[in-house]
Amino acid sequence: MNVRLAHGLDAAPRSTPVPAVVALGANLGERAETLAAAVDELRRLTLTSDVRVSHPIETVAVTLDGEDEDAPRYLNAVAVLQTRLSPAELLASLHRIEARHGRVRRERWGDRTLDLDLIAYGDEMIDRDDLVVPHPRAHEREFVLAPWVQIDPDAEIPGRGRVADLLAGLRGSDR
């Protein structure tokens, strides 16, 4: 992968806003209420504005072993926002929101009260131990692509292509 580190990755706020995409998911507890509360917190983030959110969709849980029909089902949504926060500070903010909603990181791809993933940050391509953007599996996740295309039909994943085309490919259609 050609890596172009974001300008000011860990630096002070940017002078102009950058579009960012955040995937939201929950499969434990009061899922709809948790997602709504997380969206409210996204809207209150410092240096962040114009938060638009898809309608939630319900999906089967995806684990390390694939789809698990027996696990609690997820509610998933996508938020598109404008932010002057650096990518690292936005990610830290997402982790703080998760923690306030009881997220515990015990098991990779385990059940969770809230999952917030930074999917894209402008057209930046970042590959660090603590942050990879665009999210490395977003292009193969219908639960990310379907809600994202709902609110931004012309969206693109840097290095991967149009979200609508990626979604059509996953669904096996010729759209």
Score class of each variant (00 low, 15 high):
136 P>A: 05
57 I>P: 01
97 I>F: 05
51 V>A: 14
96 R>K: 09
152 D>W: 09
69 E>H: 05
161 G>P: 09
23 A>V: 11
78 V>E: 02
133 V>D: 04
57 I>D: 10
127 D>R: 15
68 D>G: 04
166 L>M: 06
158 P>F: 12
115 D>W: 03
84 R>N: 06
138 A>F: 07
46 T>N: 11
79 A>K: 09
43 R>C: 13
156 E>N: 14
132 V>D: 06
9 L>F: 02
12 A>W: 02
142 E>F: 06
151 I>F: 07
84 R>V: 01
47 L>D: 12
154 D>R: 13
139 H>Q: 13
107 E>H: 11
153 P>N: 07
94 L>Y: 01
50 D>M: 08
24 L>G: 04
84 R>I: 01
6 A>C: 15
124 E>W: 13
76 N>H: 13
136 P>Q: 04
106 R>D: 12
132 V>M: 12
12 A>G: 12
147 P>D: 03
32 A>K: 12
101 H>G: 09
135 H>L: 03
8 G>N: 14
98 E>K: 05
90 L>Y: 03
73 R>P: 13
151 I>Y: 04
144 V>H: 10
142 E>C: 05
143 F>K: 05
162 R>N: 04
128 R>E: 13
23 A>E: 10
173 S>M: 03
10 D>P: 00
76 N>M: 12
98 E>F: 08
62 V>Y: 09
113 T>E: 08
33 E>T: 12
25 G>A: 08
22 V>A: 11
83 T>S: 09
91 L>C: 07
170 L>K: 03
5 L>M: 13
6 A>I: 05
119 I>T: 11
63 T>I: 03
42 L>T: 04
51 V>E: 07
29 G>Y: 11
13 P>R: 12
114 L>V: 08
3 V>Q: 10
11 A>H: 14
13 P>V: 11
16 T>C: 14
24 L>E: 08
69 E>A: 15
163 V>Y: 00
161 G>R: 02
156 E>L: 11
105 R>F: 02
19 P>H: 13
28 L>D: 07
9 L>Q: 06
83 T>H: 00
114 L>G: 06
71 A>T: 12
97 I>P: 01
175 R>C: 14
163 V>N: 00
168 A>Y: 03
89 E>K: 12
84 R>D: 01
65 D>M: 10
99 A>Q: 15
134 P>W: 07
